[in-house]
């Protein structure tokens, strides 16, 4: 088996709702793949089918060479799972909790080592109920790591984290990737996917709308900067001819994409002086990751899913 995960034509319905619509993708050994998509896109459904928690309505799925619907103890020993949400026995301490779960595996990692990895060692002897949400999330991740998995699933591992905590967990996942662990994570942050993943699968309304490396997804579009401005006394139609057909107006802002910013800005300011137009706001910028992602979701940009 050459791939850690293979998914072909996977479908899942909840009543009339088609949550996952015949998606196909694969994940190689040692690869880090981010499933990116807005809330309700079908990320958790997909991941929980791969984890063996949910049944599917169609398609073929293989995880480490086994169909997770018939996954046995051996498969669960090789896979680490961090669910989007799950609770604790809140009266146990952090160390007790990790010890308890360690006992289930054949070759668990050390409790201290794992606490160190997620930076929760300082709270080792505190009851879970006294931890903040972000600290509890780190224990979630510790429990995903304790079995020393070959394959780790993380469903929105950093949602609700402050920026510092997010960066810390990115560092932790990067070092995990360096150790050769195959990782599948879901997120609705483009920057997280870009930072961590070898490959990004964009999921929307149960369909794969992009499956490519971060460079491919962001690359071609980031080369096109845009000029964006708001101005008073500037009728759209009165723009210089060379720009008028490239400009779009929304929310009181006029946006135009440009391949020669210097020339266009020169023409624009000249036009403004000539017509007595005053700018309230004028910027030249590259589309952010977030812009690219939103364009993908809007269907403004299409990448052929490979």
């Amino acid at each position: 088996m050459s791939q850690a995960i293979e998914v072909a034509g996977l479908s899942k319905r909840y009543g009339d709702l088609v949550a996952v619509d015949e998606i196909s993708f694969s994940v190689g050994y040692g690869e880090v793949v981010a499933i990116l998509g807005p809330n309700g896109a079908g990320k958790s459904t997909t991941v929980e089918i791969l984890e063996g928690f949910r049944s599917r309505d169609g398609g073929d799925v293989s995880v480490l060479g086994t169909d997770p619907a018939n996954g046995d103890r051996t498969l669960r020993d090789r896979v680490g799972i961090v669910l989007q949400s799950s609770g604790f026995d809140v009266e146990l301490t952090v160390a007790e909790t990790i010890e308890l779960y360690a006992a289930s595996y054949r070759s668990p990692r050390g409790v201290d080592e794992v606490m160190e990895a997620v930076d929760i060692g300082a709270k080792a002897n505190e009851r879970i109920k006294t931890l903040s949400g972000g600290q509890q999330r780190r224990v979630d991740v510790a429990l995903g790591l304790i079995g020393d998995p070959e394959l780790l699933f993380l469903d929105e591992p950093t949602t609700g984290f402050d920026p510092a905590a997010r960066r810390a967990s990115w560092d932790m996942l990067s070092s995990l990737r360096a150790s050769g662990t195959t990782i599948v994570l879901t997120t609705h942050y483009m920057d997280e996917a870009d930072r961590l993943a070898d490959r990004i699968i964009v999921l929307d309304k149960g369909r794969v709308i992009a499956d490519a490396t971060p460079e491919t997804i962001i690359g071609p579009h980031s080369r096109d900067p845009v000029i964006r401005f708001a101005a008073s006394g500037a009728p759209h139609g009165s723009l210089p001819e060379t720009m008028a057909d490239r400009a779009t107006e929304s929310d009181g802002f006029i946006t135009l994409s440009t391949d020669d910013p210097t020339e266009d800005l020169h023409a624009l300011t000249g036009w403004a002086i000539e017509h007595g137009v005053s700018f309230h706001d004028l910027e030249l910028r590259r589309p952010s990751l977030e812009d690219v992602y939103l364009d993908l979701l809007d269907g403004d940009v299409k990448l052929d899913p490979t």
Binding site: F53, S86, G87, Y101, Y105, L143, G147
Partner: peptide, 17 residues
């Protein structure tokens, strides 16, 4: 309680019989 808080589901994802 363990069922509702997700503790049982968490165990279900481990090799614990």
């Amino acid at each position: 309680t363990q069922r509702d808080t997700g503790v049982l589901k968490r165990h279900r994802g481990t090799p614990l019989p």
